[in-house]
Amino acid sequence: MAVAVQQNAPQVTGLTRQSATAMIDEKALIMSGFGINSEMETKEVLTRAGMDADIVHINDLIAGRKRLSEYRMLIFPGGFSYGDDTGAGNAYANRVRNNLWDDLLEFLDGDNLVLGICNGFQILANLGLVPAFDKHFKRDIALMPNQSGRLECRFVSLKPAADNLWTKGIERLYCPVAHGEGNLSCSKETLLRLKRQKMIAFTYCQEDLTPAYGKYPWNPNGSVEDIAGITSVDGKVLGLMPHPERAIEFVNLYDWPLRKEMMRRKGVSVPTESMNMQLFRNAVGYFR
């Protein structure tokens, strides 16, 4: 029985900063098309963090109707691009590589950020944008089918495993996974390099921040070393399996009704935002 011991968990209540955030001038490009499906909520969360974003269909980039060079952040959001056929993220990555590779390399050369969430992470992995050791964009990791053999949708706890621009000020993220292929696998050498170069950004953990030790359901997919997300060597590209953008309000959290009741009894005011906003504030903050 997988009952989490929530009562003993630390009071990670998220943020109190709720004042209107000033918008920055830089813009983000959110990819869409062919079964990507989380573009709208991703745009919403970026706006709340202070960055305007355009949702751009990949065909509009390929046809030159939109240009990547006009943006400072590129986001591959969650979804089921091509229905996960031929491996999750693989077909969309092929489409990017076969049509947009030069534009992408130019973008990576600039002082820009790339974020891939869930299906977006699977696309980044198949493009070799993470880990991209020595700027070699080859596939070094795989996001394999979950050990449970099917899609798994549940809330998980994450803790930062490195100090980088994305993890600043984050103690714990608490957000859903919803994927069938998030089981990170790589060679021993790759794993060693990921650790040595501090490229493991987030790991799955228990509610009290102790490691998941590979145990289900805290580690929901069997990922090696509980890895939930990794960055590129320079830290500017982040791939993350769970979905912080789906739980940015307090009422989006799985356990909010219990938390709310506990806070009210203690006379603590109930927040409106969740701790997951910090990840996006960090990303936008990079340009401030």
Partner: peptide
């Protein structure tokens, strides 16, 4: 096994 969180409205 049914995604009940997509679209961010859970």
């Amino acid at each position: 096994q049914y995604d009940h969180t997509v679209q961010g409205g859970h």
